[in-house]
Write a protein that binds this DNA or RNA. Structure first.
Length: 519
RNA sequence: GGCCCGUUGGUCAAUCGGUUAAGACGCCUCCCUUUCACGGAGGAAUGAGGGGUUCGAUUCCCCUACGGGCUACCA
């Protein structure tokens, strides 16, 4: 009972534990997001732990990238390698001693053993025992007595090998015939037969722990209460459960939740970086530059996504609140998120839907807030914009933008003359009379056009058209193309009003020349 | 091959035994607009198959099929 009370009062602590091997994948961000939402929903803590136990896969810069990506998404950890915390270090490579100590403890209690087999010997074993029914024989209860380990070798020899510095790993000794089950927070009861599971390596020859040992040792020491990870980890859950038990920490074991996978939009399997390249959409949160190859993989951020949209989209991939609401701010997600509404099946990633979320978020984001973002998009494209004019432009074009980068095609013409014109569309409505009209009207503009507003301009245009005996509507499209370059954008006279008298005149005259040259 | 998880329209998905099986994306039609969008109205499109349980199954159980994951001294 005391214990129960203690458990109930335990502060919620979850961790996101990526390994720094490259860019942060969509699925990784979603796992981080679900962790974050759950933690905040329960007034708990969200911890970032770097799982860098595989030295061969370490990629410089990846850790910083992860930190930056989480920050961009608004998922700030409460404890991390960067800011530290009461249960650090938060990088597994810096906690090395901890793992050996626990692994030795398992050897002492008989739940683990030393194994001296070389990779070649293990390969030979697989070769030897391979059959059609068992294409990949496991180092486990059936075969471990045929291998070189502290279970088969005399203890003097084990001691000698240990002292000689012979490469040695520590393996978990899987019990012969037990059923290991648990309640998964998204899947319900799940169980496994230990007979099917091999003797997992716990401590590698280089002294580093494998994931299996590291997760449980760290989750224990960091007082993690709930552990969420992708479904690909489900088959190794029994290994972890047993470890919690053998280490004597079963009472403190976190509750597990295995999240559904994010699948390829087409074909089969889980979404990978390659799919994005193949299908033309980002998979990483932000641009990732591989330090070895120099190759850059596009990210959602650089492609023009708002972090709010990215996060919103990710949250709804595998979760919904049942109400039909689809647009959620991070705060709203925190308020409504619950694990029991997480879908069990994997979800195909749909870039079209992702874009829709972004479009919605651009529309909902305050113009004031959009200003610096649009400004930097223009800057990145080498277009100098007047902030005051940009501020006027944003409400005019935001509804037409799906990505932030759409501000370029949708508004660049407000800052510089078009580089090309949709001439065929003018040609369809062109004749000498109309050309004459534009010559005359620009003349009139140059002569001085009182108040320069969309309304007065439209009036003068109308009047001139009527005087020339042409329907104004027939002239509007040509005018638009002269000013904008194509058939898009806000109302023409609003554009003319914004770019000013001089520029309007110049663009029409320039386009007229261009048209002459073209005919 | 073995083990585990999953399966409602093209996609994301609601439904927690009784519904005309929501909603959204995308697609199509129309309206608004002499641009493009936005917006509005409408449309096509879903319970993998077979057994049970039940007065009644999309919903519960079993089998099959299909999909996915794992099967490393990677995470």
């Amino acid at each position: 009972m005391d214990y129960l009370c203690h458990m109930l009062q335990r502060k919620t602590r979850v961790r996101f534990a990526p390994s720094p091997t490259g860019g942060l994948h969509l699925g990784g961000v979603r796992t981080a997001l679900f962790n974050y939402l759950f933690a905040k929903r329960h007034q708990g803590e969200f911890i970032l732990r770097i799982e860098d136990t595989d030295q061969s896969r370490f990629v410089p810069g990846a850790e910083q990238y992860i930190l930056d990506s989480l920050r961009w998404c608004g998922l700030e950890p409460d404890e991390s390698p960067e800011q530290g915390g009461p249960f650090g270090p938060y990088r597994q490579s810096e906690r090395k001693a901890l793992y050996r100590q626990q692994a030795e403890r398992l050897v002492a209690s008989g739940h683990a053993y030393y194994a001296f087999d070389t990779p070649e010997e293990i390969e030979a074993m697989r070769e030897h025992w391979r059959t059609e029914e068992d294409p990949s024989p496991q180092y486990g209860q059936r075969l471990r007595m045929h291998m070189r380990n502290s279970l088969t070798l005399p203890s003097e020899e084990v001691q000698a090998l240990l002292q000689s510095g012979h490469p040695c790993v520590i393996r978990l000794r899987m019990p012969a015939d037990e059923v290991v089950g648990f309640e998964d927070m998204v899947r319900g009861h799940v169980e496994f037969q230990t007979a099917q599971i091999d003797d997992k390596v716990l401590l590698k020859a280089d002294g580093m722990p494998t994931y299996h040992l590291a997760v449980v040792v760290d989750d224990y020491h960091m007082h993690i209460t709930h552990a969420f990870r992708g479904e690909e980890w489900l088959p190794s859950a029994p290994v972890h459960l047993l470890l919690w038990k053998y280490l004597g920490w079963a009472e403190q074991m976190p509750q597990w939740a295995h999240l559904p996978l994010i699948l390829k939009p087409d074909g089969h399997g889980k979404l990978s970086k390659r799919d994005g390249e193949r299908l033309g959409f980002p998979v990483f949160a932000m641009d990732w530059r591989d330090p070895a190859s120099g190759e850059v993989t596009r990210g959602f951020r650089e492609m023009g996504f708002l972090p709010e949209a990215f996060v919103n989209m990710l949250a709804l991939l595998g979760w919904n609140d049942g109400s039909g609401q689809e647009i959620f701010s991070l705060g709203e997600l925190v308020a409504t998120f619950s694990l029991d509404r997480v879908h069990k099946g994997g979800a195909r990633f749909d870039f079209e839907k992702a874009k829709w979320y972004n479009q919605e978020w651009i529309r909902r984001t305050a113009n004031q807030q959009l200003l610096p973002l649009a400004d930097s998009v223009f800057r990145d494209h080498g277009i100098d914009v007047d902030p005051a004019r940009l501020a006027e432009a944003i409400p005019l074009v935001k509804d037409r933008c799906i990505l932030l980068t759409d501000f370029i095609p949708q508004a660049a013409f407000l800052f510089r003359a078009p580089l090309a014109w949709d001439k065929p569309s003018i040609a369809a409505k062109w004749n000498p009379q109309r050309q004459r009209f534009f010559l005359d009207w620009t003349e009139e503009l140059a002569a001085g056009h009182g108040e320069w507003t969309a309304t007065t301009l439209e009036q003068s245009f109308q009047a001139a058209a009527t005087a020339a005996g042409i329907k104004a509507g027939e002239l509007q499209l040509p005018l638009r193309i002269m000013l904008v370059g194509g058939k898009y954008g806000p109302p023409v006279f609003t554009i003319a009003a914004l770019i000013g008298q001089r520029e309007t005149y110049a663009r029409i005259r320039r386009a007229l020349q261009e048209l002459d040259a073209g005919t």
